[in-house]
């Protein structure tokens, strides 16, 4: 065996930060897309190519001539074609929630900003904008691996905050047992988004009524996955508080 092999004693372990310099999910997505296209091209190439050759053979030599088998696909050239077809890559793969920032209050100040005036029944409020989060500039140019700055990127729902609030609005039911008490207002639910994007440690930060509290935490537990927060390139657990608003819409106000 012509293997060259060596043993190295190295007492400095590779840290997550060392690895982070080579983390670039945009590149992976791009590579994946290219691989998909390559697959499609291959099939199209074989199908189209064979047909074309057959037609050409027919024209040139008439029906009796046997068709030369398709030459093996030149992977390298095909790759070049595929890559050149790639659209210019945007600086961020999917600009999420840039336009409609919706507030998620840091845990420390759950009720700092007053509730807004909601209008409908069992309404989940659409809160006030939060200062914009800092995005890590991601560059996909080759060889531009600079150590990632240790910037905190906040957790966000995969389909954006509007979709999350839509989900919460639809999912939240005013518990009919609480109607006699006619409680209305906001339950602030605190939770963590773990590094896999799941809500954990869901608890009521600001209580309203046991039944409403229960409903609010249930909805949060069942909400769709989030994109986890990260410090630099490393996923981290993040703490968030979301307000869930309960309103009783009386039949008289409904008629008006």
């Amino acid at each position: 065996m012509s293997r060259k092999l060596d043993i190295v004693i190295d007492n400095t372990p590779i840290t997550a930060e060392d690895a982070a310099a080579y983390q670039d999910f945009g590149q992976v997505l791009q590579g994946h897309k290219a691989a998909l296209r390559l697959q499609r091209w291959k099939w199209a190439g074989i199908g189209g190519g064979t047909l074309g050759m057959a037609a050409l053979a027919w024209v040139a030599f008439g029906p009796m001539t046997s068709v030369e088998p398709e030459s093996p696909i030149d992977l390298e050239n095909e790759m070049a074609v595929v890559w050149s077809l790639e659209e210019p890559v945007p600086a961020t793969p999917e600009p999420l929630v840039e336009e409609e920032p919706i507030a998620i209050k840091p845990n420390s100040v759950p009720n700092a900003e007053g509730p807004e005036e909601p209008t409908t029944t069992t309404e989940v409020e659409t809160p006030v904008p939060e200062p914009e989060e800092e995005e890590i500039p991601m560059s996909f140019e080759e060889g531009s691996f600079s150590p990632a700055p240790r910037v905190l990127t906040e957790a966000e729902p995969w389909d954006g905050f509007p979709a999350l609030y839509e989900f919460l609005r639809k999912e939240t039911q005013y518990p009919t047992e609480a109607l006699p008490d006619s409680v209305q207002g906001i339950v602030w639910v605190a939770f963590q988004i773990d590094t896999l994007g799941r809500p954990q440690k869901v608890r009521v930060a600001e209580s309203l009524h046991p039944l409403l509290d229960h409903e609010a935490t249930r909805v949060i537990r069942n909400m769709p996955d989030w994109k986890p927060a990260r410090m630099g390139e490393t996923p981290v657990v993040s703490r968030l508080t979301i307000p869930i608003t309960f309103r009783i819409l009386t039949s008289s106000s409904e008629e008006k």
Binding site: F25, L29, E94, T195
Partner: peptide, 25 residues
């Protein structure tokens, strides 16, 4: 997450970030 990533490759990012350091090392 894997099931989700099968239809939406963006979701793969969670697994990517989780295991990248280990594979890199």
């Amino acid at each position: 997450l894997i099931d989700q990533a099968k239809s939406d490759p963006r979701r793969f990012e969670v697994l990517y970030r989780r295991y990248h350091p280990e594979i890199y090392r």
